[in-house]
């Protein structure tokens, strides 16, 4: 069978589908000072599955941690229109489970084009393999 670390090089999704892959990628992102990208991506996935009674509080938590501060790595990568859409959603008593989907897509594209290829070329990944 294909070793997991070779699968990680197939796509970002293959990497994020494996616990060890996530750990190594997160270590790399920490070194680069942008681990929040990955945490935010998972927070968006978790948000969709969160029960309705916790959703409003969680939406605020995600918004405060990653979006409201415009100098943060996540906030800087999300389009102004997307941030303004999230700002409108976050004040509702029953936020839409899909309210972070566009932002998640934008962060995912950024990782696919930038941090993920850099990770595959990094010493960290090469030493691991």
């Amino acid at each position: 069978p294909t070793p997991p670390y070779l699968k990680w090089a197939e796509s970002l999704h293959s990497l994020l589908d494996d616990q060890e892959g996530i750990q190594l990628f997160r270590t790399f992102l920490c070194q680069e000072g942008c681990a929040d990208l990955l945490d935010f991506w998972f927070a968006c996935s978790g948000f969709r599955k969160t029960s309705q009674e916790k959703r409003a509080k969680l939406a605020k938590a995600i918004y405060r941690k990653y979006i409201v501060d415009g100098s943060g790595i996540v906030s800087r990568q999300i389009k102004a229109a997307t941030k303004s859409f999230i700002r409108d959603c976050v004040v509702r008593p029953h936020p839409d489970p899909a309210m972070f989907e566009q932002a998640q897509t934008e962060i995912q594209s950024m990782m696919e084009e930038n941090t993920y290829p850099l990770f595959l070329k990094s010493d960290l990944y090469l030493e691991y393999t």
């Binding site: 616990q19 998972f42 978790g46 969160t50 509080k57 938590a61 995600i62």
Partner: peptide, 20 residues
């Protein structure tokens, strides 16, 4: 009652794949 940070951390963990 969970703090916002706990809630967020649980949310992130819940979205990650389980151990292979």
């Amino acid at each position: 009652m969970d703090s916002e940070d706990d809630l967020l951390q649980k949310c992130i963990t819940s979205a990650m794949p389980k151990q292979r």
